[in-house]
Design a protein around this nucleic acid. Sequence first.
DNA 1: CATTCGATCTAACAACCGTTAGATTGACCG
DNA 2: CGGTCAATCTAACGGTTGTTAGATCGAATG
Lengths: 219, 219
Amino acid sequence: MKEKPSKSYLYEHVARIGKALSSPKRLELVELLAQGEKSVETLAAQAGIDMRLTSAHLKALREACLVETRREGKYVHYRLSGPDVSQLWVSLRDVAEEHLIEFRLALAQMVSDPDSLCSESRESLLQKARQGEVFVIDVRPPSEYNAGHLPFARSMPLGELEKRLADLPSDRTIVAYCRGPFCLMSDEAVKLLRARGFTASKITDGVNEWVASGLPIET
Amino acid sequence: MKEKPSKSYLYEHVARIGKALSSPKRLELVELLAQGEKSVETLAAQAGIDMRLTSAHLKALREACLVETRREGKYVHYRLSGPDVSQLWVSLRDVAEEHLIEFRLALAQMVSDPDSLCSESRESLLQKARQGEVFVIDVRPPSEYNAGHLPFARSMPLGELEKRLADLPSDRTIVAYCRGPFCLMSDEAVKLLRARGFTASKITDGVNEWVASGLPIET
DNA sequence: CATTCGATCTAACAACCGTTAGATTGACCG
DNA sequence: CGGTCAATCTAACGGTTGTTAGATCGAATG
């Protein structure tokens, strides 16, 4: 008799997750958190959002149990509640890419030079990286690299790239990656490297896309 | 220079998907549509929602490109835009189940008798069904069975179950399934069958959970 | 103990969303 | 050619949400 109320409660609970993922700003925060634990201040700075608003959005994510917090002195560090959350973020984005043509247009428009994309498959890239045929660099901030990175990848933060050109090989292809398809850091890196005569390309994968496709990472 | 605007557009597009999945009623419609193509009228009846409101929610889902329509005379048939959408629904629900304790409580409370749950793994159940050790019945409406069902499963709609008891074996375990963990039809079926002396249990999987775990279905 | 600074809380506003109910469209049928 | 019925559109309401800005909390620091 009384199936209706309890059943609709179930949908309401799931809708809480959907609601948490219905704001662009919150999605950006989720993507940043998918790179590793970060403080509110860091998140606000990296997303370019006022810290008070950032805190409000993080509260919404916390109430949906998508993120957890850890206090360390003055700082409160946020992290995703589990790997399934970053997996969900990748799935959500994949559905958008599959069905929203506007999304695909916007994404294509954002990448300055489509020619910079590496055409290798994930597996063959991994193979070449293992054998040293290509030189894979992680251009994200070091803290994100330390939280997990692609196998055989070296940390080479975008900001330090220009100073550390000597550490890069000029006889092999350099493959750069960053946070994922939305992130432009690897684009910048390829632009810079090519201008300096290196052979460079990028992959759109970040650590989470890599993990989502079932491949291993290093920490 | 102008990275901000185009980048936030990307998150806005993905947020459209999240927003479409942020309403309990819309999620219920998605789950129903995950069972197969249905008309607005059917959806409204099965979800217990006014048809005009149902139409409005379907419009929202259509604008997020999660569903597509096909006109057939007076009727407009809705269907999910692709298998990735039902996969996303399963992922969303799994995250809710993993992280929302209230959700797990509500789910546990809804199932009348936890003892009715079949303890087999998917693979071993499939094996036993193949060898005829168990008798798998699909208690959903026939149209949903025809749109796709578990291997070796017979269609046995809940409404006709009482009339067709003679078609069921009394020397083997009967395993019932329906639309998924939220659906109570298989519970009803097990209750009825046990009252009539049959050995019966249920699985919480529906076709989509089955597919999501990588197992095959028949049509 | 006062200061600093990260983080949260509060109030207030506009914009949006879900719901309801009446009106309208469009295809079929007698 | 009306009549029926599925489906959509429209207007209006009440509640919610995102954003902003000011105020507050709480842990370190001098």
